[in-house]
Design a protein around this nucleic acid. Structure first.
Lengths: 207, 207
DNA sequence: AGTCATAGTGTAATTATTTACACTTTAGAG
DNA sequence: CTCTAAAGTGTAAATAATTACACTATGACT
């Protein structure tokens, strides 16, 4: 059963109001917005919308009980906004919190695989240095700043003023950074390198 | 300035109520929950919480105007819930809409890279058949059912009753499915295969 | 001993909101 | 032409929610 034009107007207003204000409009507010002079005018529409199953009244007493059925109820404590960078800014980790983020992406914690602390960010990968580890040019990676990364983790490091991804390995008690691409078999001693963080999640968009 | 124990209890209740009901509790509702006999008992807490900057009153007249400052206002039309499957169920695409989903994941449209239509789902990858395309065992991929996939796209296909990922290629006018792993150089003619959909997004969680 | 912040009680007035009921207008369908 | 659904007007009562004011109790700090 489809909505009439008027019902859709009212429905759209409720959805917009909820998005804007985080709660439903009251009947008088709907009246004012549509210049309907009687609360019953609105009540009729609400009854019709409820009969058609697109809204529902919350089962409690009180005001503002309209709920939009189609609205997904996202437990927002499981969503995390991460800043997106095109490259890793040099300098101490604190400085690039809010300064040069190009945008923000929302991540579901179950997809992220961990609970991000302050300082996590998304980075667009440039270069194929970790191709054999399944990280390609153009992928997005979630970086978690870590004071002490473990052997075997993939880290973002500043090498010669440029940030790249490498795997942190330990050979005969010494730390190295290793590219995983048959074409770049370099090994960098970790000594004078700044490790910015470890890669926790990889995301790739395909055509 | 930190909250007192009591203020934190009330704050937590407001946050929980908002998550549960999509709108703030009224003062009488807070009273009932904490067994506070005077509306002013609650009003004092609200004033303190507002002074400390953790809540704010919506600037409109009316009821239920408490807003939680820390709450991220996510434009929910850019978030999409996708069902998660451990494997691709056989059978017509419509049948596995809500039947056997193991869970649901929320995706930001900007991370997804496209606006998902009905029928999209997340699939846990088993096997290394697309290793050289950067898709590894255990990765999650977003599958979009497509009636006519294009050459070069990675598709999920039912081969010998088992679903795997392959790249769709066209050689001398004929369609084939090709694994991208030096160890499995098979080419499957497309003829008798059911293509379930194309891979649009790849997500990998790392330790 | 006095002051202040915190956390209330109790009451009342005012405003907002819902709900109920009786009735009207208009346009389309049979 | 009659009937019905949709979209109202108008009013009233009942309930819910906010706001304001006067006052109390307790513990920490000075």
């Amino acid at each position: 059963m489809t909505l009439t034009d008027r019902q859709r107007e009212i429905y759209d207003y409720i959805v917009a109001f909820r998005r804007e204000n985080g709660c439903s409009p009251s009947i008088p507010e709907i009246q004012k917005h549509f210049d309907i002079r009687s609360p019953n005018g609105v009540a009729g529409h609400l009854a019709a919308l409820e009969a058609k199953g697109v809204i529902r009244m919350a089962d409690r007493i009180g005001s503002r009980r309209i709920e939009v059925v189609a609205e997904k109820q996202v437990p927002s404590e499981l969503l995390h906004a991460l800043p997106v960078f095109g490259h890793i800014p040099a300098g101490p980790p604190q400085e690039f919190q809010s300064t040069s983020a190009e945008s923000t992406a929302i991540f579901d914690e179950t997809m992220l695989g961990f609970k991000p602390k302050e300082g996590c960010f998304l980075l667009k990968v440039r270069g194929e240095s970790m191709k054999d580890a399944g990280i390609l040019n153009g992928d997005m990676v979630v970086i978690e700043p870590t004071p002490s990364p473990a052997a075997g983790q993939i880290v973002a490091a500043l090498i010669d003023g440029e940030s790249t991804l490498k795997r942190l390995v330990r050979v005969k008690g010494r730390w190295f950074l290793k590219a995983e691409n048959a074409d770049y078999p370099e090994l960098y001693p970790r000594a004078d390198l700044v490790v910015q963080g470890v890669v926790r999640t990889v995301v790739r968009k395909l055509g």
